[in-house]
């Protein structure tokens, strides 16, 4: 190589090192370790025996690991991702999950998780406004403005104010089962934010009933999550921040 080549080579290598030095990958390794732990916990018996893939039971082993890894992925995607502004494929780009991750529930089907189904149902319901008067889902509690939502005494309550109105509700003490309307909630309200004339969904899930909905990747809505006591609340909204959740108290 000539001196010119040497200079050029040094410049190229310096540029490669500037651009391609690996970042700190500890956080990524930690996330993978957490997913691996979830997989171990999901199928300890199978994993402990180190059965070859071709042996009997391997598909069951793999399925268990797939389920565990999918569940772990839900947790991972909700975690902060370190210091880089990264590509944010859905559902990472949800501003959701105000609190830390919670233990995932197993998906209902391989491929489509129960969380995704739940998110799709919420998305459909809000997008199509099926709760509007005269619509097939028009079974709202026709009580006027809530001064106290249907459930009280130690359960979450949406605090009344002049800037919002309860439009529709199921679950709680309404006598209307949300599941009858394919809604993945024990209790759900449509709240209209009067200033912007925006409807949002508020879900109130009692202990042990968290559906962890994931909105579809092409959803126009955002979902926010807030633990409140033993309850978990969700707000599905077209806005960039939750405006109803802060007004739910016990």
């Amino acid at each position: 190589m000539t001196e010119h080549d040497d200079t050029a080579q040094a410049a190229i290598e310096a540029a490669l090192r500037r651009q391609f030095s690996p970042p700190d990958l500890d956080a990524l390794s930690d996330r993978i370790a957490a997913a691996a732990m979830a997989a171990e916990a999901e199928a300890p018996a199978e994993l402990g025996t180190a059965v070859p893939a071709a042996a009997n039971g391997a598909p069951r082993h793999e399925f268990a690991v797939v389920v565990a890894v999918a569940a772990a992925l839900v947790v991972m995607l909700a975690w902060p991702r370190g210091d880089r502004p990264s590509r944010v494929p859905a559902p990472r780009d949800r501003p959701a999950v105000a609190a830390g991750p919670t233990p995932p529930t197993p998906p209902s089907l391989p491929g489509t998780t129960s969380h995704q189904v739940a998110g799709q149902q919420l998305d459909d319901f809000l997008r199509t406004a099926d709760y509007a008067p005269g619509s097939p889902q028009d079974c709202r509690v026709h009580d006027p403005l809530l001064d106290d939502s249907a459930v009280g005494g130690g359960t979450p309550t949406l605090v009344e104010s002049e800037d919002k109105r309860l439009v529709w509700e199921c679950g709680g003490e309404t006598g209307i089962d949300c599941a009858d309307h394919d809604l993945p909630a024990k209790r759900m309200m449509i709240v209209r934010l009067l200033a912007s004339q925006t409807d949002v969904i508020v879900c109130i899930e009692p202990p042990g009933a968290d559906p962890r909905p994931e909105l579809p990747s092409d959803s126009e809505f955002n979902i926010f999550r807030r633990p409140l006591g033993d309850y978990v609340l969700y707000e599905v909204t077209p806005l960039a921040q939750p405006l109803a959740l802060p007004h739910v108290t016990i």
Binding site: S29, G48, A50
Partner: peptide, 27 residues
């Protein structure tokens, strides 16, 4: 280190050990 298939824990450990190399492979 075993002659059998990787366990998830072993996978995680090997991933951590090789993460810089793997990142370069990905890049």
């Amino acid at each position: 280190i075993s002659a059998g298939p990787l366990t998830p824990a072993a996978f995680a450990a090997r991933f951590r050990e090789s993460s810089r190399v793997l990142w370069c492979v990905a890049a």
